[in-house]
Design a protein around this nucleic acid. Structure first.
Lengths: 199, 199
DNA sequence: GGCGGCATGTAAGTTGTTACATGATTAA
DNA sequence: TTAATCATGTAACAACTTACATGCCGCC
């Protein structure tokens, strides 16, 4: 009964303009990295299916698109055009499917934190083993938080031509708040282990 | 190359005492619900595999265990013993595997928030569609936070006979902090939307 | 010539869910 | 007697990852 969401990622991104599967992947990595991911093994078969369903159309061998310029701006490099590619464009049926999905309530997010499992069971081993795990966790999310802050600053710098920034900033805000919560938790845990007590 | 973590959930719980697959499921639901889940379709085949690997042993048709009393205490009901069951107990090899896993760094948690995807793309539909989604999100996590607070109060009430509560409280603290962050985000988003109604 | 980035795709494998089948016991 | 809870298990399916295969282009 689970529904594949890959198609809506594709449809949503194509709503901004035509782009290739490769570009979709790059954009998901750049913009959604903190709350989503897609692999080529999901992306390409889904693009094919969407074409077959009349949701999108394939426009072979097209030049640089708006989306390519967005990726290039983010990576600081132009598109060194390699192999010929297939650019996909949204069709009315696809736009309609996207809108239907937007109106439907989102599914519950299945959170799985292996670090919490280890924390819970840590008494079964040497509790000191948790320390490097916590420090790695802290370092990772401190880095991710810095990325989000740069992303936010960049968005605010370039202004809001089409009025879509409020939603994007709201999404970034989610990431910042949760990462800040992770970091505060992590630091409290580490501090407690060193002997001090808080919370 | 992905490693199933179901086995460590089993091993970790069996480290507290022998129990049945059914009891493991109940305990995962009761204690880990906010950061983990297991289905019978994963649990039973994994139990079988662990027996075959000599990690655990099956003790058929055993009476009430320590773990059953824990489940009964949480649900306020005794075990109305139904069909005969198989209680599993941890063997030295299983304890060793658990300890090895505890020492290894946890894998990155793959976060997937469909609501953020919808928020990001919300400009492609009617932005007002997000409001019920946000309210459902808020209601859900407010409820979950209340559960965690009760869980914490209960743990503090019963004292700490075997010294394992610090780790469990730390795990609960993670849930509380992240849920508080979710709620603060959600309420800010909702408030902002009310500020620019009919726009 | 090789490397790295661009670009598309597939095959195989793993993981995890859902639905179902079975059957015992107890309480309403 | 019927529902609920206890209890175990499997088959079919869906979702997703990984590794690989292919090949173009520009640069050093």
């Amino acid at each position: 009964m689970k529904e594949g969401k890959t198609r809506y990622v594709i449809l949503g991104l194509l709503a901004e303009g035509p782009m290739s599967g490769y570009t979709i992947k790059k954009l998901v990595e750049a913009r959604f990295r903190f709350f989503w991911s897609e692999s080529y093994g999901q992306l390409y078969p889904e693009l094919k299916a969407l074409v077959a369903e009349g949701m999108i159309e394939a426009l072979p061998k097209t030049g640089e698109t708006e989306a390519d310029r967005a990726v290039a701006a983010a990576s600081g490099r132009g598109r060194a055009r390699g192999r010929d590619r297939t650019v996909h464009a949204l069709l009315p049926a696809g736009r309609e499917a996207l809108r239907e999905w937007l109106a439907r309530p989102p599914e519950r997010e299945p959170a799985r934190f292996e670090i919490l499992l280890k924390m819970y069971f840590s008494g079964q081993g040497d509790r000191a083993w948790m320390d490097p795990h916590l420090r790695a966790f802290e370092a990772h999310y401190a880095g991710e938080l810095a990325v989000l802050r740069r992303f936010e600053a960049e968005l605010r710098r370039i202004g809001d031509p089409d009025g879509s920034h409020a939603d994007i900033l709201r999404v970034i805000d989610f990431g910042q708040r949760t990462y800040e919560a992770y970091l505060a938790w992590c630091r409290t845990a580490l501090a407690e282990r060193e002997g001090r007590t808080s919370r």
